[in-house]
Design a protein around this nucleic acid. Sequence first.
DNA 1: GCCAACGTTGGC
DNA 2: GCCAACGTTGGC
Length: 154
Amino acid sequence: MKYWLLKSEPDVFSLEDLKNCPNQTEHWDGIRNYQARNLMRDEMQVGDRVFFYHSRQAEPAIVGTAKVVREAYPDHTSWDPTSKYFDEKSSPENPRWLMVDVQFESEFSRPVTLKELRSIAELKEMFLLRKGMRLSVQPVTEEEFQLILALAND
DNA sequence: GCCAACGTTGGC
DNA sequence: GCCAACGTTGGC
């Protein structure tokens, strides 16, 4: 099993929104970065666990967990001209972008903020904390995942 | 809202 | 195939 961190702007799509989806499941559309796409395509598997991260808010934070419930498949918003994620080079015959389905798993009793993560020596190497790291789909090690889960459940 | 850091595009 | 210009991300 692998572990991941998915970023989302809560104004656009929050953990609460995921929780309120039918079956508490939604497709993770709109990924338009090759590295992120390749991680979804090549590495993500059903059953993998995911941190749900809220970016671009006053206190960016991990707010809960989800799990992967469907492996990568074509992102239909990429050939929808009305979508803000439209890409004219993508089509149903030749899809350029992919998405996975994720299902709500848990909401932390408190958000674990970026600031707090930075203060923890064991997380120094965490992808999220590296300078200039903007990937919206990131691998997380099992150690990091368990450590942060424990923090959240204090 | 600013802007540094990064990824992509396209002219050459 | 280089790299300047441009667009986007995301912390602050």
